[in-house]
């Protein structure tokens, strides 16, 4: 639209710079993870898998991974069920006070995590649940459930409710309608929500530090606390693994979203 080549060049330069700023440092980490050096240095001497071996065979790292996976799966399970069910409840019933539910569901996204951490600490101290995996998983559920709720709600808002009415008119009762139509037609969104819930738990540091202490840390907490000590390249290897997981999840989410959108479009022409 009448823009000069100069403006276009500036535009692309800007995009490139911002992109570099956003992901450049992360890519440097991947490079560092193959270093043979004992300490962080530039440029690193390449190439070795030694830091991956440390990560794989060190019992303390393994312990952290196991704990992260355990807490993460439990939190994902709870957040996915509670969030999806609530999203269905608000989207497919005449419920007064839907806004209140919405505010409830979004609140954990905007309240600073340190408040949940200190508050959770004093609450869990009273309940004698400090260091408990279940307690930690519940707090991670609190942090993950808004994502599930928001993602599933917006998918439900986009899918035509008349497919559910159609199932009812064809002879399916309510539970069959939910089982055969509501859930499968929104499955991509539900899975996306679950992935986010897992990601949130798998990254959470602040609340986890307070509730698990340094005795039995999760993976990100272990990374976090090893950063305040001497920075060993093993952290780069751990980070690279996490980056790869992030890339896989991101592609998965992109795929799921396209899938859900295609379905929504199919119904709305």
């Amino acid at each position: 639209m009448g823009e000069t080549a100069n403006i276009r060049r500036i535009r692309y330069l800007l995009i490139a710079l911002v992109a570099l700023y956003l992901i450049g440092p992360t890519l440097v980490v991947i490079w560092l993870s193959f270093s043979t050096d004992e300490v962080l240095r530039f440029p690193p001497h390449l190439f070795s898998w030694r830091w991956y071996e440390v990560f794989l065979f060190d019992e303390r790292w393994n312990e952290a991974v196991r704990r992260s996976l355990l807490v993460g799966s439990l939190a994902t399970f709870l957040a996915t069920i509670i969030g999806s069910v609530a999203a269905f409840g608000t989207a497919r019933t005449r419920l007064p006070g839907k806004q209140i539910v919405e505010i409830f569901a979004i609140a954990p996204l905007v309240v600073p995590p340190i408040i949940l951490a200190t508050g959770g600490y004093s609450l869990f101290a009273k309940l004698d649940m400090i260091g408990s995996n279940i307690g930690l998983a519940i707090m991670h559920t609190v942090l993950g459930v808004p994502y599930v709720y928001l993602i599933v709600s917006s998918a439900l808002a986009r899918t035509d409710p008349s497919i559910e009415l159609a199932a009812l008119s064809l002879g399916a009762n309510r539970w069959r309608t939910i089982r055969d139509v509501s859930i499968p037609a929104n499955l991509p969104a539900i899975i996306t929500g679950a992935l986010f819930a897992f990601l949130i738990s798998f990254d959470e540091v602040v609340v986890t530090v307070f509730l698990s202490g340094s005795l039995a840390p999760t993976l990100p907490v272990r990374v976090f606390s090893s950063l305040s000590l001497a920075v060993s390249p093993v952290v780069a290897a751990v980070s690279t693994v996490q980056i790869i997981i992030a890339i896989v999840l991101m592609c998965l989410v992109g795929f799921l979203q396209r899938w859900q959108r295609r379905w929504a479009e199919a119904v709305a022409h």
Binding site: T159, D160, S162, I163, L165, A166, A167, L168, S169, L170, G171, A172, N173, V181, P184, A185, L187, R262, W263, A264, A266, V267, A268, H269
Partner: peptide, 17 residues
Amino acid sequence: FARGIGMVFQSYALFPH
């Protein structure tokens, strides 16, 4: 579901999945 009717919706309401 117990009325024994058939219905065609304006949006067709085909199950997308």
